[in-house]
Write a protein that binds this DNA or RNA. Structure first.
Lengths: 303, 303
DNA sequence: CGAGCAATTGACCATAGTCAAGACTAGTGG
DNA sequence: CCACTAGTCTTGACTATGGTCAATTGCTCG
């Protein structure tokens, strides 16, 4: 599985990653920090300084909570990133999504009182914890909190919908293209570069998230790279041709239709193409992808 | 695709049953009806009688709201059922989920102020509408409302997660088995029979929801029927062997492991077992569906 | 009754899952 | 410091699964 980094005491069990430091650590954080994190104006609910919140710290591969546990808190990512996973009865680990700064975790368990999925840190992370039992009084005492929580949960719901949209695509390359664009948007939303970023999750996690085999993720990455959309070095991704990537991502069914349309359209315009990296022509093995090659070539993305 | 049915202006299409009646119709409904629908005790917030709510009526195939529209209300299904759909840029219609009585719709648009997906009635339906601008004051004035809304939105989020779990399965039969079980649970939750029910959506919708071709849904239904799990007559479904169905549904990867495990297990309790006889030292590379047949046979599900 | 859509089934073959092997990296302990 | 393990990542080969096209049947509703 994943390389286990025990964060504190040597626990003899290698399978379990959670040491003592994953328990709550109370630091001088308060509700006002949360309101700020969620984008509230600086001084709304100034009394919110007086409501202390726990800041939870996690090391890589440590679980924030496990599937099936009672829900005591909902969490907001303060730094770092996590994945949400559900383990099927047969032991298969399905990745439901990834969370970064500002994202809400654990809310899906509120209705049943139990977490339907686990959350695991992809890197060292810190999270603000709000006890569910406090939710009611918080909404009463701090008028800004209710709408912000609503907004956050609504955003989660929207994100999940988009995740479903990823899986709708039939072809693996399209799924991956959509995934890359999704990550790119998120990075931008967090103030980072949308063009070049570092993936925090391994191929297996991406594969599970996209519903394909991890070998297929590898292959699809090289495909996208060959077409001149991306440059990939392990987890480092650079988007070279966002337009082409978008085009690929926008085709749910196959690659064929797009390639034809695109090739036809671009046969008219045809600007001078910039050269990314001229690689020896690889023989495309299938009819469908042959089209993409032509499309890409006619776009000037590949010389 | 689906015939687009505008629910406002009289469209000249004679074949379609949707006319003016899909616009808002204010009937004597109030917040107390909503609280009741969501499972609150009968007399909490008795003043809620005084807060009127719009009841929206939809005919089959009419849209509750369209993707991209401004969010004015969130809705709670009072009767009937709907599907949530997202139309990709290439025109492909992706079904995100289905909603029945008590389910919340439109909440995912609250964060951005625009609906990220459409909602379309699968049959004549009625919905209670709550204007988003009222949410804040409602939560202030009616203490029971906030938690109920929270619970409803949390449930939606959980459901979405389960939907993602459907797509995780590689084999089409497994996806369909999970879908059927999901529907069964929902029917039961709504007080109907979990064993025998009527699907409100067509094969295409199921297919889109599961991320497979609609022909594959047909084939998978006949497969499950052949294995003795189900009886299917068009949209009428009867579960014959829930245990086997569960078994099939619980295998994310292939059908292989399950069939073997199951055959082995039942070989113990069933001394006649000739099933797990001389298994070749190495598992046959892809045993395929033959295994299921044997497993089913050894279970006595198929004569 | 006919038009149109839903559902099923068959044939074909491209895509992607599976197994296998090798390259590379990071963490561990001698 | 260097193996040594254990993980990730990539690539190749093979083939089952499922997407696509096509034809048929059945259902519903004018």
């Amino acid at each position: 599985m994943y390389s286990i980094v025990t964060d504190t005491v040597a626990d003899a069990m290698p399978g379990r990653a959670n040491g003592l430091q994953d328990v709550n650590i109370h630091l001088p954080y308060s509700l006002s920090d949360l309101l700020g994190l969620l984008g509230a104006a600086p001084h709304v609910d100034s009394a919110s300084n007086g409501f202390p919140l726990a800041m939870r710290q996690l090391r890589t591969d440590a679980a924030l909570f496990h599937e099936g546990e009672m829900v005591e808190c909902i969490y907001f990512v303060y730094s770092g990133s996590l994945k949400r996973v559900r383990t099927a009865e047969d032991g298969y680990e399905q990745v439901l999504g990834f969370a970064g700064r500002g994202d809400l975790l654990g809310y899906d368990g509120v209705c049943m009182g139990r977490h339907p999925s686990s959350a695991v840190a992809l890197e060292d992370a810190r999270l603000l914890a709000v006890q569910t039992q406090d939710l009611r009084s918080l909404m009463g005492s701090f008028p800004a909190f209710g709408p912000l929580l609503q907004k956050a949960s609504s955003l989660e719901l929207q994100r999940q919908g988009e995740s479903l949209g990823l899986m709708a695509a039939v072809s693996a390359e399209v799924r991956l293209a959509r995934f890359v664009l999704q990550m790119s948007e998120r990075m931008q939303a967090m103030g980072q570069s949308a063009r070049r970023f570092h993936l925090r999750m391994c191929r297996r996690d991406i594969a599970s998230y996209l519903g394909v085999a991890h070998e297929t993720v590898s292959r699809s990455f090289t495909m996208l790279a060959d077409w001149g959309c991306l440059q990939v070095d392990n987890r480092e991704v650079e988007i070279l041709d966002a337009a082409l990537l978008q085009q690929i991502a926008s085709n749910t069914r196959g690659l064929l239709d797009m390639a034809l349309d695109r090739a036809r359209a671009s046969a008219v315009e045809r600007p001078q193409g910039r050269v990314s990296d001229s690689r020896p022509a690889r023989r495309p093995r299938t009819a469908g992808r042959e089209q993409i090659w032509r499309a890409a070539a006619s776009l000037g993305s590949v010389s």
